[in-house]
Amino acid sequence: MVGSDASGSIRERSDRIARHIDRARLLAIAERLISVPSPTGNAGGALDALAEFLTGEGIAVERPQADHPKAPAVVARLSAGAAGKTLQFDGHLDTVHLPFVPFGREGETITGSGSCDMKGGTAAAVEAMLAARDSGVLGGGSILLTAHDLHEAPWGFGTQFDRLISDGVVGDAVLIPEPLSGHLPVAGRGQACWKVTIRRDGPPVHEVMRPEGAPRVIAVGAELIRRLGELDARVAAEVDPVAGRSSAFVGQVHAGELYNQDPPTCWIEGTRRWVPGKDRHAIEAEFRSLLDELAAETGTAIEAEYQLVRDAFALNLEAQAVADFRLAYESIAGSPLPTGPKPFVDDGNSVWALAGVPAITHGPRSGGQHTTGEWASVDDLVRVAHTYALTAALFCPRGS
């Protein structure tokens, strides 16, 4: 619980926060998180490190399993001791399955696995919570900090975070420090990934020994690709002016072991994306119906592994949290933040789909996500911490 007051102009509150942002502490958090390998599904060590750091700072921490006992999530709260809104800072601590790169610093840039996506941003969010506490600007309401595993597909699909939301661990608005700093994303497409396997009866055989009339799985695969192309052309008419168009995409095709062998299986992988306003359940049903029709026509068995990554996303620019965030950003950066699309899917998509509250994706200037060359600007980590804390100072007391 924090004794604080929200009096004073936005400039006064911003200056107070700036004086209490501890650059060395922020870097210590980032180093501690990045130094622990945490590939998706195995982020328990990084989550433990965050929990230990917060406990050392006097912040009470809860560790709900949220259907993933191998790596319990981190849930921490900072209360002003007065009524108001809850602003959530959320970050995933898992990283893609690439060789681990330890923490490094080169001048005003940090490097290492997760420095961009998104341990650096999470460290900035933690510093924002601590700076809000130390500066006493939280005049009402509370900050909710969450961190979790199972974010990165195809090893995780956001299920731990989704469970936290379904269990009521969600704020009145959410800030997510993913590596996107140049614009405010206001719309994004939903995504599912799929793997289709086409099978015929019998073992692989030499092409001249194949039974007459037996299905040719490669030909069936080619027909499936053609029909998915037709689907892609049809859904191209579904366009969001910001997010872009719906799509059906094929990225991999595999079959056979030799040039003159007739294989019994062919498998194809790709994605399906859709614009805000489309029903993801109807989209999956349409995809499966297409496969069922082709299987019946060709005498093959066709199976699909269809996995939702995240639903589509839209941000209500009239929401109070969005207005407060934009005001905080402009007061610190000196210019407005333009709007634009969300090019990827993230946990903000889940917040919008499952909780219906505003979710703002905004993180530090950084790069190299999903590579071994990740980096983040230290100056921009400080800016993000400042922006998050000031947004909380504006938004949380509302309703108090």
Results as ranks from 00 to 15, higher is better:
residue 52 E to N: 04
residue 375 W to N: 07
residue 179 P to A: 03
residue 61 V to H: 03
residue 116 C to G: 09
residue 396 C to H: 04
residue 137 V to S: 00
residue 54 L to C: 06
residue 164 L to G: 03
residue 21 I to W: 09
residue 167 D to G: 08
residue 74 V to H: 01
residue 389 A to V: 03
residue 171 G to A: 10
residue 55 T to Y: 01
residue 187 A to D: 12
residue 210 R to V: 14
residue 30 A to R: 00
residue 138 L to K: 03
residue 319 A to E: 14
residue 186 V to Q: 02
residue 238 E to N: 11
residue 395 F to S: 01
residue 288 R to V: 13
residue 72 P to N: 07
residue 169 V to G: 05
residue 282 A to W: 10
residue 336 P to K: 01
residue 225 I to M: 10
residue 198 I to C: 05
residue 189 R to G: 00
residue 88 Q to I: 12
residue 118 M to Y: 14
residue 274 W to D: 02
residue 365 R to L: 08
residue 173 A to Y: 07
residue 223 E to N: 04
residue 375 W to P: 07
residue 126 V to D: 02
residue 60 A to T: 13
residue 301 A to E: 15
residue 86 T to Y: 12
residue 22 D to R: 13
residue 291 L to P: 09
residue 112 G to H: 02
residue 182 G to E: 15
residue 192 A to R: 09
residue 2 V to F: 00
residue 105 R to F: 03
residue 393 A to E: 02
residue 312 A to Q: 12
residue 126 V to G: 02
residue 157 F to A: 09
residue 131 A to P: 11
residue 11 R to L: 12
residue 168 G to V: 04
residue 219 A to K: 08
residue 159 T to Y: 05
residue 283 I to E: 11
residue 361 T to E: 15
residue 64 P to W: 05
residue 150 L to T: 04
residue 376 A to M: 06
residue 126 V to H: 04
residue 353 A to P: 14
residue 161 F to N: 05
residue 213 G to Q: 12
residue 246 S to G: 12
residue 291 L to R: 06
residue 392 A to G: 00
residue 122 T to K: 01
residue 96 V to N: 09
residue 73 A to L: 04
residue 270 G to C: 05
residue 218 I to D: 12
residue 353 A to W: 10
residue 213 G to D: 05
residue 76 A to V: 12
residue 216 R to K: 10
residue 33 L to R: 06
residue 28 A to K: 08
residue 340 G to H: 08
residue 150 L to H: 02
residue 189 R to I: 00
residue 19 R to Y: 07
residue 115 S to E: 07
residue 264 P to M: 07
residue 94 D to A: 11
residue 123 A to H: 09
residue 308 L to C: 10
residue 34 I to A: 08
residue 218 I to V: 15
residue 304 A to T: 15
residue 223 E to M: 07
residue 353 A to D: 13
residue 48 D to A: 06
residue 371 T to A: 10
residue 229 G to Q: 04
residue 325 F to D: 06
residue 164 L to I: 04
residue 18 A to G: 10
residue 216 R to Y: 13
residue 185 P to N: 13
residue 383 R to L: 03
residue 329 Y to M: 08
residue 391 T to E: 04
residue 340 G to K: 04
residue 39 P to V: 10
residue 387 T to M: 01
residue 296 A to C: 08
residue 224 L to W: 06
residue 227 R to M: 10
residue 245 R to F: 03
residue 227 R to H: 09
residue 114 G to T: 10
residue 16 R to H: 03
residue 29 I to F: 08
residue 211 P to H: 12
residue 359 A to E: 04
